[in-house]
Amino acid sequence: MLKTSLSRRSLAGGLVGAAAASLAGCSRAAQPPAAGAAESGRKPGLDGALLGQGVELASRLPQLRSMIVARDGQTAFERAFRGPSLDTPVNIKSASKTVLASVAGAAIARGELKLADRIAPILGPRVPASADPRVQQITVEHLLSMEAGLEPTSGPNYGRWVSSPNWVAYALSRPFVDEPGGRMLYSTGTSHILSAVLTAATGRSTLDLARDWLAEPLDVQIPSWSRDPQGIYFGGNEMRMSPRALLRFGEMHRNGGMSGQTRVLPATWVEDAWRSRGGRSPYTGYTYGLGWWIQESAGQPVYFAWGYGGQMVYVLPSLDLTAVMTSDPDARGVTGHVQALHALMDQTIVPAALRGA
């Protein structure tokens, strides 16, 4: 399950217990599905009773805006519970990091970058003269795996970072709290450095690359999003994609980089992105690959993108299962929401696939 311990437990204990409590406490008076909300009929391959239970629980989460569940390429359930439609691009917050990692994968496939490339020569004058000499050791892979060693700019440091006049220079000037290639240090600044590296290496904006290498072959929209004071597109936050676009993104990865008959990413890249580098979040216990979180759900390996507030893409290749959930990105004061989404996966959606297999 999506917790530090990988053993299955009942709803009475652990992370799932806390999540189940939050689900049970959801008001039945929550806002009903928006007018015109889409819902497909259930398809074979998922246990209808368990899926129905998950839908009922999901409908009572006031922060949840949409949910899509697909099995073996077939949409089994989709609904916009509230808020924008399933085709409206929404802020996916830090799930942007996973999309950005895929842009980097496409750049590597095209020979524009290598995982082993050191970033300082690519960035050139963007590296401040005052930066610690260890910046010279940071590679593209270190950025993707959150192992750059630099003090994170997320959490309590985020505000100072985005208020700075030069985001790339500020992130590169942070003190080293570990060596490059050391422990995982989750940081939006690290992802933003990757955006700058992509721009410097290709001579094209991150937006242009994302549209050309991902949006066009997936036949989805990626609207423009915010940029730093130097014009570098925000790497790691604020991207917008619709729930259905996120489903195509997740399905492409489930299919080893293929979208229909179109090769979007090499299969070897997807395998590498889903290989844990050994880094583990001290807050959740989850491991990390190249832009993807890695854990288990109901005993099955799950790879997921995770954005603040509950912007989720779950991919379980062993079950041919992909699920997307989007939530209010600006909600405050709602505790346990992401844990409740994990519980939906652990206790209803994944078991529905196991029983329907």
Rank of each mutant, 00 (worst) to 15 (best):
T4Q: 11
S7C: 01
S7Y: 06
S7L: 10
R9W: 12
L11Y: 12
G17V: 05
G25D: 14
G25W: 13
A29K: 07
P32F: 08
P33V: 11
A34Y: 02
A35T: 05
K43V: 15
G45P: 02
G48S: 14
L50H: 03
S59N: 05
P62K: 06
S66L: 06
A70S: 10
F77W: 13
E78Q: 12
E78W: 01
A80T: 08
P84G: 06
V90E: 10
K97G: 11
V99K: 11
A104N: 07
E112L: 11
K114W: 03
R118N: 04
L123T: 05
L123G: 03
L123D: 07
R126H: 05
V127E: 06
V127D: 05
V140L: 14
H142S: 07
A148K: 02
S154M: 10
A171H: 06
L172M: 11
R174G: 10
D178A: 15
P180F: 10
G181R: 12
R183Y: 12
Y186S: 12
Y186G: 10
T190I: 10
I193D: 04
V197W: 05
V197G: 06
L198R: 05
S205P: 01
A210G: 09
A210V: 04
R211S: 08
D212E: 15
D212R: 14
D219I: 00
V220G: 04
I222S: 00
P223K: 09
S226H: 13
R227W: 00
Q230I: 08
Y233A: 12
Y233I: 03
F234W: 13
G235E: 04
M239S: 02
P243C: 03
A245R: 07
R248I: 01
G256F: 06
G256Y: 09
T262G: 00
A267D: 14
T268G: 13
V270T: 08
E271Q: 14
E271H: 11
D272K: 15
A273P: 02
W274N: 08
W274A: 09
R275V: 12
R280L: 01
P282A: 04
Y283W: 15
T284C: 09
T284W: 14
Y286Q: 13
T287Q: 14
G291F: 03
G291Q: 04
G291H: 05
Q295S: 15
Q295T: 12
Q295R: 07
S297P: 01
G299Q: 03
F304H: 13
G307W: 00
G307R: 03
Q311F: 07
L316E: 07
S318W: 05
L319A: 10
D320R: 13
D320Y: 02
T322I: 10
M325K: 04
D328E: 13
V334N: 14
V334I: 15
A340N: 11
A343C: 11
A343Q: 04
M345T: 03
D346F: 00
D346C: 00
D346K: 00
Q347P: 00
I349R: 03
P351G: 10
A357E: 14
